[in-house]
């Protein structure tokens, strides 16, 4: 009897091979290109060039600023919405949440096009407020990704905590800042990780809204599309480091939260 064929463990083999070949190996290829020169010799010149060039450093900072601003605005808009949906008087809150996350499933380039058309009518020309428009379109694109994790955390929050705080004499504001906000940190952290990195690297929104004038943000894109493999790899590695950092921090947050329970 061939008992081993189709055993559960063996099913992982194709996926493990797939992950090794197309997820893990590409990272090593990027690592190789980042630390070699055109002749394939080990070199730190690519990194040195990146960190000594004002333009590339500026690009990185600009991307971080756009990412941070988008994340902050999303958080400020999404928190009240998620809070009202989760704790307010809305009867069918899950159905209501669906209405808020539904735009997520419409192709993002089409949604940005829609926003662009509206802004063109309102402002006359997109070139008057390029930075404002960029942030607006970014927020429009990423808002559902912030609302969802916040809602999930806030619905799980036990109402008895809020009642207890009220009974013990806390004002509404005190209850919010001392009870609700600290307990919703895991939702904030996961929302921030879902928005910050994609917003930082989404140069397509920049490209579309700025109407193809030169912008710092799309420099990342231009390295990649020019197939400048060495410099593209350097940027990839820097982004990977950033991502690893953010992931570690958010993991620590969720672990602390679990430990506290």
């Amino acid at each position: 009897m061939k008992r081993n064929l189709f055993s559960r463990k063996q099913l992982a083999v194709p996926y493990i091979i797939f992950l090794l070949l197309f997820v893990v190996l590409p990272l090593f290829v990027v690592l190789y290109y980042g630390f070699t020169d055109q002749e394939g010799n080990l070199s730190f010149a690519n990194f040195l060039a990146f960190f000594t060039n004002a333009k590339t450093i500026g690009t990185l900072l600009y991307s971080v600023v756009i990412g941070l601003l988008t994340t902050a605005v999303c958080l400020l808009l999404a928190y009240p919405v998620a809070y009202i949906l989760a704790k307010g008087a809305y009867a069918r809150r899950h159905a209501f949440l669906m209405v808020f996350v539904l735009p997520m499933w419409i192709n993002f380039t089409l949604r940005i096009t829609a926003m662009k058309e509206i802004l063109t009518v309102l402002e006359g020309n997109l070139a008057y407020h390029p930075f404002f428009n960029t942030i607006l379109c970014m927020v429009y694109d990423f808002l559902p990704f912030m609302i969802m994790p916040l809602f999930n955390t806030l619905t799980k929050l036990d109402n008895q905590y809020l009642e207890a705080a009220g009974d013990l004499g806390a004002t509404r504001a005190q209850t919010f800042f001392k009870v609700v906000l600290p307990l919703s940190v895991p939702g904030i952290v996961s929302g921030v990780t879902m928005v910050f990195l994609p917003a930082m690297t989404n140069y397509v929104v920049l490209d579309m809204v700025y109407n193809s004038t030169y912008i710092m943000g799309s420099l990342i894109g231009s390295y990649f599309s020019a197939y400048d493999w060495h410099n593209g790899s350097v940027i990839s590695l820097i982004l990977l480091l950033l991502i690893a950092g953010v992931t570690l921090v958010s993991n620590r947050f969720s672990r602390e939260q679990e430990a506290r329970r």
Binding site: L27, M200, Y203, F224, G232, L239, L240, I243
Partner: peptide, 10 residues
Amino acid sequence: VNADVVTGFS
């Protein structure tokens, strides 16, 4: 968790 740009490029 990776940025799609990096996934695509790599």
